[in-house]
């Protein structure tokens, strides 16, 4: 799991690469929450994420909730068709805001 964190217009852009599963989930959670101390507005780019497991979806939701609770905003971008479908079938999709690209996500803040 590779986690890159950049800031643009004081919006955090967190780019994940690899699989988010039980092996990587806690690292993702920790790093994203640490970074979100800097800004409450977060874009999580999943373009290079090939798989999100059950534990991975839970971590995304936890991160999402924690940032929301600070009145922040989280947007997922680059969610593959397969991951979108899994999120639909398991109900997770209802909790997230999903936008196709980072550029579009940036302009939504």
């Amino acid at each position: 799991m590779q986690i890159d964190i950049n800031t643009e217009n004081s919006i955090l852009i967190i780019t994940l690469k690899g699989s988010i599963d039980s092996k990587t989930a806690s690292e993702v959670q920790q790093k994203v929450l640490e970074a979100s101390v800097e800004s409450d507005n977060v874009i999580i780019d999943l373009t290079k994420v090939d798989f999100v497991s059950s534990a991975g979806l839970r971590v995304l939701l936890m991160v999402y909730r924690q940032i929301k609770s600070k009145n922040g905003k989280v947007i997922l971008v680059g969610v593959s068709e397969e991951i979108t479908e899994v999120m639909e079938m398991t109900g997770f999709i209802n909790f997230f805001e999903i936008i196709d690209t980072v550029t579009n996500a940036l302009s939504s803040f």
Partner: peptide
């Protein structure tokens, strides 16, 4: 019976259906 059974997510899929 779950499309997501191959990922071990049958519980969430069934609960989502019931909801």
């Amino acid at each position: 019976y779950a499309a997501t059974g191959k990922y071990g997510m049958q519980v969430d899929e069934l609960k989502t259906l019931i909801k």
